[in-house]
Design a binder for these strands. Structure first.
Lengths: 251, 251
DNA sequence: ACAAAAGTGTTGTGGCTACACCCATGC
DNA sequence: GCATGGGTGTAGCCACAACACTTTTGT
């Protein structure tokens, strides 16, 4: 924007006629992540058509004429997961992928989003012909289009968000234990954390979590019942919860 | 993406026919920031046409059929600033703005970028009919479209990037003093910093800056000549250079 | 001599890591 | 009792903010 309408001459950037070429298609792609049994999973759909027939891909779809990319992403998320309460979910714009040729058929500009869910319903597929499945992150390889890259970008982004925001609670059910919250961090970062220190940092961050007064729950069937917490009102984390020493690289 | 081609039925998300509605236009918008005399400036162009005729706006323009958003942004940047060496500049994707109605004429999806320049050439305007100008950040208000918001988002993002990446050197000429680098941080963050501590943190971060062997330069005409540095090879900053207490302290 | 800007040293506090240790529960 | 997971305490180290001080230039 800031340029002028196509077909007008005065923008000086070379004339652009919106009817002279194939129009751009605009889509959304979703990296929907969850935690199952302590490992990170991603929601994938199997493609029924060429190109990439039979390959797995991130869910997504076209923008409708009167919705924003955010709206479209939320709609697709509801359709693909079958969830009803999609309105409260955290949905973060990741970035936009616009390389020509990323879809062999036509010019597609895609706005990618990340979404974090607590352990989610097993069955999926929406009304869609293609089946949908939760796949362990490490097994999600050789996806269709440039979705490998999008997924990798999503994981990197989520990892960063865990340091500076309260995003981790989005992986947890409404009431959760600090042990469960720690598992989120360990699964996403791929690093074990020291429990006592983790606990102190979480409780020291104002608004991160709020205790549930009477709450307690057994986690592994054994051990002391853990106190329950809810997500607090804060969105950002002060001080940040930094991951253990990412190397200082000389090169 | 991940859905199917428009006009095909099997995506189940409602049929979408790419010829049934006005096509989406895809543009890029640029928040080009620089430092002039210790204050942050942004590159704006004056609009010649409705809507928002006479208002200032971020530079930008339409994607050409065979270029990515990054390519388009770089091309626009070269055109608007008149710089020749645009190839080496840091250009970061900010986010995509897609709300229906953000351009009253048609559906425009815009991918916004930030670019950081060392104190730049005064004259602008490219081949464009509209004039271009560097405007102090604080005076850039009531821009066209949703550009106020884009600009605000850009500043927030740049502020965050200064903490975790080596982006600050992009505001400096090829050889710069630590005092100049500090001014970048102070201008973007709007906070004064302690010089000795700043210096130590910068030098402690591996790959952030590299000394120029014989280099020294007077900064304010008076005082001891400062050693010169170049941007180092690192892209990210370890440890990060955190801004002074953003709220939320324990004590 | 003085002002101005660069650069070095030092000290005290606070935070954080890395543990040891206690508590509550199931088997 | 023992294993398992939750939760508390603490000692030492290290980073960093704050500020005093030295150095090198221009006027």
């Amino acid at each position: 924007m800031g340029g002028e309408l196509p077909r007008e001459e005065h923008d000086g950037h070379g004339t652009y006629d919106k009817y002279a070429h194939e129009p751009f298609a605009v889509t959304v792609d979703l990296a929907v992540l969850t935690l199952r049994g302590g490992t990170l999973h991603v929601l994938l759909v199997e493609r029924g058509q060429e190109p990439y027939a039979g390959r797995w891909a991130l869910p997504g779809g076209f923008l409708l004429p009167d919705e924003s990319a955010e709206d479209a992403a939320r709609r697709e998320l509801a359709e693909e997961t079958g969830l009803a309460d999609v309105s409260g979910l955290r949905l973060e714009q990741l970035r936009t992928y616009s390389e020509p040729g990323r879809d062999p058929r036509m010019r597609v500009v895609s706005v990618a989003f990340t979404a974090l869910l607590p352990d989610a319903p097993e069955a999926h597929g929406g009304g869609d012909a293609a089946q949908a499945r939760w796949v362990p992150y490490d097994e999600a390889r050789e996806l269709a289009f440039d979705h490998d890259r999008i997924l990798a970008d999503a994981r990197t982004r989520i990892g960063d968000r865990l340091e500076n925001t309260c995003a981790a609670t989005a992986f947890c059910p409404p009431e959760f234990t600090l042990g469960e919250l720690q598992q989120v961090y360990e699964a996403v970062w791929g690093t074990p954390l020291d429990r006592p220190n983790f606990r102190r940092k979480v409780l020291a961050a104002p608004g991160f979590v709020a205790p549930v007064p009477g709450g307690a729950r057994l986690t592994g069937g054994r051990g002391k019942p853990a106190a329950l917490y809810r997500a607090g009102p804060a969105a950002t984390l002060h001080p940040p919860l930094l991951r253990p020493q990412r190397e200082g690289r000389t090169t």
